[in-house]
Write a protein that binds this DNA or RNA. Structure first.
Lengths: 332, 332
DNA sequence: CTGTTAGCGCTTTCAC
DNA sequence: GTGAAAGCGCTAACAG
């Protein structure tokens, strides 16, 4: 490797001390203008860039943020990463990205790697609860994004509220028989069910379909839904709320392959409001990604700079329902 | 910030010298077993992780690879990033990600930032030719991925061949009138046209539709295609080859909104073979992403380790056509 | 086999 | 205002 130019070299060329070069670079105001100009000129000429590694070592801050997401198949997480990168850069930080692939072991390895890299803080989409305990004991701040967890600072939407929005929308459109595809212990579903309950609708009749795969592999998602749907000659529900947009899309395709129409026969509402739902005209619960990212980063950086009381901060943002073709139909 | 534990501290606790701790960590075989065990025990107990920043400074290698992609909307690039991260990690490297958003200025800023971070090498999806010159003069190796460029090492598919595959497939299915949506100076199109020419089909009649946006915003893609399509009462072509899957998808939607059927009336072949085409049953040119990523990384790392002759390496991989519903129809 | 020492590139007192 | 010097955490000769 060609040797990179160092500050020492700049100092030699500009005929000043290394300390002065450092001062110029860091914008120290009380450097003689002429000297500063000379240094800047040399820097420009040789295309010197400071060695941030050395700065990190000396300053004991890397300006690096670890980002761990649980997957990249769902476009929702991609948008998250993209905004995190962009916003972090604007705040003077870089991100170092890891995909934990829903694997807690890999997640923990990644965290260790982050530590090794001297990251200043970490934004994480947790794989589950497996590492939360250790995560909260890390010597650096950690913010959980998209999931509210009790042991960490977190920024997420109000999932309960999201479920309520979907249910309310279905009820308003005249639906009386419901299905939900996703985990039954998810707050989305609790919110969904609670609204039905409030309207004295038979919550116990809601068809809840649990899937092993809800992303990663569309074929498996499809198979999972199909397995559940196969048990019905005719569907005992007129609307479906799904855990994410990928599931919603596969669900709609399966319904249409039966010769039924969406939304006329069955309405569908997805989750995440990714471009998948936008392209395909699928109604979906919108998560304000940019807000979530800005909020997370602000929170994290405040923690890094130790400006906050030690209490855990838990921020919940408002979901909104984007109604599109797939649920734009009134029953009876 | 809580003070992180250092090697010195481990040395003190294990009652050995710092150098010995270093030897143990780096797996130096000739350390007394008993000592090694003692050191390992302390490391385990206090949860010590080495400071890679210091290692970087000392060893003059960061084990960091810069990755710059031109966008994240097209799922193709996401897959690329995901595999790069995964594969790099397995090779002992981490990636630092930047999105240049098709902006050469931002791209160059990102590169400078990479340099600052002491990356060992860089994998880039160039925004265009704007920075290629400077890129080739960097003190670290750079590999262009997905695009073959003359001034840098590169790994890409044979775009010419890809265009040929699409054309050959259309011709075999009996098509005689063609359209292409994408840049006309793209090798894809050159390959496409060359096959028509070989078959004595009227190349000059091929409808070439250039788009300003081919990703980023589906609505704009849609509008772009629509603007071109609007000029026809009936389409003067029976098949369309598109620059990427997003364009293919929007194209199909617009055709179907006209009451035409895909593939019966018009066949469509996309590009990239992303999950979009898989979900939607769109025929597409497959790029062997994993191969491309492995090859790029191998090449890059060989460069980093200076095991290669200085000649520019240009690797072209084979594209394949994945035939799905959107082009699965034989004319007459 | 193990400890001592120099120094990676930078920032930051501390003198002058 | 500027330079000299110490030291961030680690590795790698060099001695012993």
């Amino acid at each position: 490797m060609k040797k990179r130019i160092t500050m020492k070299e700049i100092a030699r060329l500009a005929n000043v001390s290394q300390a002065t070069v450092s001062r110029v670079i860091n914008g120290n105001p009380d450097v003689n203008e002429e000297l500063a100009a000379r240094v800047l000129k040399v820097i420009e000429e040789v295309g010197y860039v400071p060695n941030q590694t050395a700065q990190t070592l000396k300053r004991n801050q890397s300006k690096l943020i670890g980002v761990s997401v649980s997957e990249m198949y769902n476009p929702y997480f991609v948008e998250l990463v993209d905004h995190l990168e962009d916003k972090a850069r604007k705040l003077g930080y870089n991100i170092i990205l890891h995909n934990s692939k829903h694997n807690p072991i890999l997640e923990w390895e990644n965290i260790q790697n982050f530590l090794t890299r001297q990251i200043d803080g970490c934004v994480i989409v947790p794989t589950g609860s497996y590492n939360l305990e250790r995560l909260s004991k890390l010597p650096i701040p950690v913010v959980s994004i998209t999931q509210t967890v009790s042991s960490l600072d977190s920024v997420a939407i109000d999932h309960m509220k999201a479920g309520k929005l979907a249910a309310a929308s279905f009820i308003k459109a005249g639906h009386t028989s419901f299905a939900y595809i996703g985990k039954s212990d998810d707050e989305k579903y609790l919110g969904f069910a609670s609204v039905l309950y409030e309207h004295q609708l038979p919550v116990s009749d809601v068809r809840v379909f649990e899937l092993e795969q809800t992303s990663n592999d569309n074929f498996l998602v499809r198979q999972g839904i199909e397995r559940h749907f196969r048990q019905f000659e005719t569907f005992p529900f007129t609307c479906v709320f799904t855990e994410n947009d990928i599931v919603a899309l596969e669900c709609i395709k399966l319904i249409e392959e039966r010769g039924l129409k969406v939304p006329e026969d069955i309405s569908v509402i997805g989750f995440d409001d990714t471009y998948l739902s936008k392209i395909m005209g699928i109604s979906s619960i919108h998560q304000p990604i940019e807000d979530m990212v800005s909020t997370s980063l602000e929170l994290l950086i405040n923690r890094i700079e130790e400006k906050l009381s030690p209490d855990i901060v838990s921020i919940q943002l408002e979901p909104t329902l984007m109604t599109r073709k797939s649920s734009n139909h009134r029953r009876i």
